[in-house]
Structures are given as C-alpha cells and as structure tokens.
Computed example of a mutant assay.
Amino acid sequence: MEQRHLGRSGLLVSRLGLGTMTWGQETSPDEAAAQLAGFVDAGGTLVDTADVYGDGDSERVLGRLLRDLVPRDDLVVGTKSAIRPNGRYDASRRHLLTALDASLDRLGLEHVDLWQLHVYDPMTPLEETLAALDEAVASGRTRYVGVSNYAGWQLAKAAAWQRAWPGRAPIVSTQMEYSLLHREIEREVVPAAEDAEVGVLPWSPLGRGVLTGKYRTGIPADSRAATTRYAEFVRPYLGEQSRLIVESVSTAAEGLGVSPLAVALSWVRDRPGVVAPIVGARTPSQLLGILQTEDVTLPAEIRDALDDISDV
C-alpha cells in the first residue's frame, strides 16, 4: 500500500486508515483480529480509534491485538480525546491529559503516534487546549498531534497558534467527514488545511455506507440503516440527490469493471489535501473489499463527471 506523509511532518502513513469504532461492540475481538491482520498484510499502517468508541472497548481490543498479534512498530496508532462519556465536550487541560493517560492504559502503550482533539470545545480557551497538546508531546505520550471535526477557521486558528512560537507541537492532521455525498469541507476546511500544510483524514468516505450501492433498492435487513442505533445516521443520505450520485457511481463502476465502493473510495482518496481516508468495516470480508481498491485509479473523465454530479 502506498505511504504518504501526514501533513508537513516526517510521519509516513498508509493511504488508507483502519477505523475501529465498532470494535468491541458490532465487531467481535476475533473479527477485529482478522481485520487487523488483513490490513497489515496489505501494507496498511494507520489505525484510528478514540476513547469514547465503545466506552473504551475499541482501545482495549486494539491494545490486546498490539500485545498478541501485531508488533507495535508495524503500526501508526492514533486515538482521540475531548468528549466525555456523557457526550459533553471537554477540551480542558485537566480532562485531555487525564483522558490521554486512560487511553494509553487501555492500549497498553507508553505513547501513541497521533493524538487528536476529537471536537472543538467553545467553552475552553483554545490556548489552554493547545497547551495540553504541547505537554503531551513534550512528555513523550504522543509523537504527533491533530484535530478532528474543526471548522475551517478553527483549524486555521489552531494551526497558526502552534506555529507562532518555537517549540509548540504543530498540527499535522485534521479528521473530517468527506465523501461524494458530503463535500462541504471543500469550501473552508480543505483550503485551510492546504494553507497550513495539514493532512486531511476523511471519515465516512463511503457516505455512511450509502455509496456502496447497498441501499439502491431499499434498506437491507442487515444494514446499519435498519438498526435503531444507526438509522438516523444514514437517513440524511437516502434522498433523491444522493440517489443520483449513487447511480452515477454505480454506472462508473460498471464501466470500469470494479465495485461502486472502489469508485467512491478512490475518488476521495485522491482528492487534493487528502492523506488517508479512515475506513471502517464490521466484518473481515467487508474490509477485504475495501483493501482491493488499492490498485484502482479513476480516469480523469470519470473523476470530472463525478465532480460535476456531486457538486451541490
């Protein structure tokens, strides 16, 4: 798998990242082990988790696999903090550093490679939040830092603050929702990221699963949209405009002899500023389909056509 630099840093990561949000819940430890083994065998390195995924179970499962299955040095491990278990945003210095220590304990690690602020907390002064990043790097608990779900102005302000004084930990990544069904970040976040030389890590690059084409004829009984937990998460992408985009992706896939998943993922993977889409799979077979997209590159005319139909 191709490796790319994460922002303006020397850190190389695979151009696909493995998301672990379902690990320990929908994805069993055995299935997680199969996913991680397959990902590493394919040359993948970047694994993304967060302290709130499964109330910490995702980190616990990953920690066991780092101990028993995959050598630590084979992976770039990233986690996120700034959301309390009750859902309240908290990017105070007190909470962030306590949360990072708890993440390290669950992961069984002395440090992570990438520690990200999961959300922007408007109730905490930004300079306090960013000082916690500096301390985490200085103390050796993380090697690099990034942000997630920051608006364009929030990213620009954070990146500029960190560059304003020697010794501060630079922001190297921003993790945002980005797909053919969700291109809003191109207006402000992507330009801000490119200007600050911050790498973009798209989450939900398959449009919450809709771009795979699984919903073209209805809602499958075994899909996330059929569950109480995820129905409202998927619903915004089941409208008429989304249907037109999905049909265009499917048409392109038929012409290229690949899956709709491969078309949608290749499109976002090779967008300006993007370093590595974060892909999540409930099962090893789903991940295998994702990994098989590595050799797919969209012809310019198909990319342009998809740009036009999804530019809303």
Rank of each mutant, 00 (worst) to 15 (best):
D30C: 00
G218P: 12
S179D: 08
N149R: 14
S266C: 06
Y150D: 04
Q25T: 14
P205S: 05
R94M: 03
L206Q: 08
D30T: 07
E194F: 00
A159Q: 08
D295S: 15
L155A: 13
D57T: 08
S310I: 07
T283N: 02
G273C: 09
E26I: 01
L11M: 12
P202Y: 07
H111D: 02
A193L: 07
R143C: 08
L288H: 13
V258G: 06
G7S: 13
R168E: 05
P166D: 06
G257R: 10
G87E: 11
I278G: 02
L155N: 06
W23G: 08
D30E: 15
G24H: 06
V47N: 01
T142L: 10
Q25V: 11
A192H: 03
G257H: 06
Q3K: 13
A136F: 01
W165E: 15
A262F: 04
R208T: 03
P284D: 02
V52P: 05
D74C: 10
D74F: 03
T22Y: 09
T293N: 10
L133F: 15
T297A: 11
R94S: 15
D74S: 14
H111G: 02
G44I: 11
D57F: 01
T49G: 06
P220G: 09
V274Q: 06
G44F: 10
S248N: 03
S148D: 13
Y89V: 11
A151C: 04
R94Y: 07
Q116G: 06
G218Y: 12
K214H: 07
L96V: 13
T124N: 08
P125D: 11
D55R: 08
E128N: 14
Q35L: 13
V13F: 04
G54Q: 01
L114R: 10
L298P: 08
G213E: 11
L261N: 05
N149Y: 10
D222M: 02
L306T: 01
E26F: 04
L65R: 00
L298H: 08
D105Y: 05
D73C: 04
P125H: 13
P272F: 10
P299L: 05
G54E: 01
H182W: 08
T129N: 13
I309V: 15
L6F: 04
M176P: 01
P277D: 05
A193Q: 03
D41G: 03
Q35G: 09
E184K: 12
A33W: 00
V147F: 01
A138C: 07
G43I: 07
L211W: 01
E59L: 13
R303H: 13
A164S: 15
H111T: 02
E301C: 00
V258K: 11
D73A: 15
A32D: 02
L181A: 04
R93S: 15
G199K: 04
L6T: 02
H111F: 11
S81F: 12
G24I: 08
T174P: 00
L211K: 10
A276W: 02
R269Y: 06
Q35K: 00
Y215P: 01
T297S: 13
S259E: 15
A158Y: 12
A158S: 15
K214V: 14
G43H: 03
L69E: 12
A37P: 00
G167A: 07
Q241D: 12
Y89A: 12
V268R: 01
L261T: 11
E194G: 04
